[in-house]
Design a protein around this nucleic acid. Structure first.
Lengths: 302, 302
DNA sequence: GATGATTACGGACGCCGTAAGCATA
DNA sequence: TATGCTTACGGCGTCCGTAATCATC
């Protein structure tokens, strides 16, 4: 029983359009994406329209600009795809260009805060004193693309996962688990639950939270991992300083979820036991074949 | 110690160029790729030139047309990337279009030859008599892209691996191991080694082989897995019929490596013991979330 | 009424096909 | 000499920017 379908001559999705789509989705705004990418507002609008036209689906709701179901599905493909596109170029040019004398290391704020990190850098400088090392901090997204593009040789990323799980796969990049620590919720001292020894995340679904996208797990991620609605944002915090964030939480502006190791003594914080969650740090690098320095760093961290 | 690199404003590699690059590399010819893709010879030449220009590396040698080291590296990225590009479109449109009433199953020739396959199809038809099933056969490459594009709902692929390993990752597609069988070399009856109970692959490096790309593992793959040079081709065979291939091998036109289960009684064939190799069959499918029929099929095969 | 997405239109650039050139077996 | 890759050039389509329009808060 063999039938011959009409051969669908569907042609390549334009990655240019995917790039702006991802940017628009992540910024939640056409105009913001336009300035980010150096386009005009109209161009971005045309590009999204073209993409939606091509796929015959609406990808974003407007006002507010949020991915539809189809858009969310597309994002799952587009992000690793663009990462690999960058990695492809970087990986090929790395073959010809002479390896630079400086090792550039990326870190997300909470990953750089683990004790092993400065120790490993110190050990590395000790062992290879002639190696010039540069450390750059940034968000997970930026760091991942920088590693893919070859702007960073190696990076430490952090994220919230079920214990034993890895961080979401960064398509062509390889990741090595470095550390896993329990997580805790920072509460104001007089919070009704502050005396509990431990608590379930869902008990706090109705509380007010701080949306601190650059440091703490996003509320959307918390919703996904806890499997519950709620976790509404009472305050946005843009920045990477955990001290400030903890101060805000302690003062009652909202709750925040942090790795236990990042919370100083004296701060009211309760461990989260359900669901089982861990703050995980991973070492990320591109497809360097003879990865000498990265391997050394991994050994020190591991 | 923070330094600010010159921000490399590298822009996206054109996937259009990647597509033709992959085609040229796999066909080993500009003109053949041109006809395959519906371009003119000149256009393909320009595209490859543009890509090499963009990356500032020669990607292919000419005459013969073979990937350079940089080209090979680029291929490693380009193939899964293009697969994912197809999968992205297919995955999004699948959300809107109503699921077709017919299940389309792909198989590579040797995967379809395992006993479990026709049995599973039979069981599936029995259990879901109203489901229309179509089976299509093809090469691994074609089948993988068809699954990615959604032209196939599910597929069985086969390949040669070290026992326990999976087939090379098909980027966004998920694979489930189905079966693993030992491999054997088909020899002419009067071959000096025909009386051995078992043999090392490297003992046959100097022999003449049949390059049967569509059925058996390619000689390049055999070289890679055995870690030895040699395995020169005495005869090319294009086709998927193992009987013909075995007849050629038995008649002394060259050796060929096949899964033991695909070799009938009476044919002179010696098991390969070193290196440890297995013929592996995997079930491949796209990112169908509620994969009812595929799941059922997997269960039957597993 | 202001912010922000969409539509209209014109110019520039890119890309492919035709055709001529050139190297290698 | 023939096959097959490369270079030259012209036309067509695509895509972005400017500018005007429309919708929503």
């Amino acid at each position: 029983m063999v039938s011959c379908h009409s051969i669908s001559e569907t042609y390549d999705v334009d990655v240019h359009l995917l790039r702006t789509f991802v940017t628009v989705a992540s910024l939640g705004s056409f105009s913001a994406a336009a300035t980010e990418l150096g386009y005009t507002q109209a161009a971005v609008s045309q590009q999204i329209a073209a993409l939606e036209n091509d796929l015959k689906v609406q990808l974003l709701t407007r006002r507010p600009v949020v991915p539809t179901e189809a858009g969310a599905r597309l994002l799952e493909h587009a992000e690793p795809l663009l990462l690999r596109l960058d990695a492809a170029r970087a990986d090929v040019v790395r073959l010809t260009s002479t390896p630079p004398a400086t090792l550039t290391v990326g870190v997300t704020p909470l990953a750089g805060a683990i004790p092993a990190f400065p120790a490993a850098i110190a050990a590395l400088r000790n062992r290879m004193p002639r190696l010039d090392i540069t450390v750059k901090s940034g968000t997970r997204q930026r760091i991942a693309t920088a590693v893919a593009r070859g702007d960073l040789d190696i990076a430490l990323l952090d994220g919230l996962v079920a214990p034993g799980d890895s961080l979401p796969e960064q398509a062509p990049l390889t990741a090595i688990g470095i550390a896993e620590t329990p997580v805790a919720v920072v509460l104001p001292r007089d919070h009704p639950l502050a005396t509990r020894p431990a608590l379930r995340l869902t008990d706090l679904a109705d509380a007010r939270w701080i949306e601190a996208q650059d440091v703490a797990p996003s509320l959307a991620e918390i919703r996904r991992l806890s499997g519950a609605e709620g976790f509404r944002s009472a305050l946005g915090y843009q920045g990477t300083d955990t001290q400030t964030l903890i101060a805000l939480a302690t003062a009652g502006h909202g709750l925040t979820l942090l790795p236990a190791t990042a919370i100083p003594e004296g701060v009211t914080a309760i461990a989260v036991t359900t669901p089982r969650l861990a703050h995980r740090v991973e070492l990320l690098h591109g497809t360097l074949r003879k990865a000498s320095a990265p391997a050394a760093l991994a050994a020190m961290l591991g």
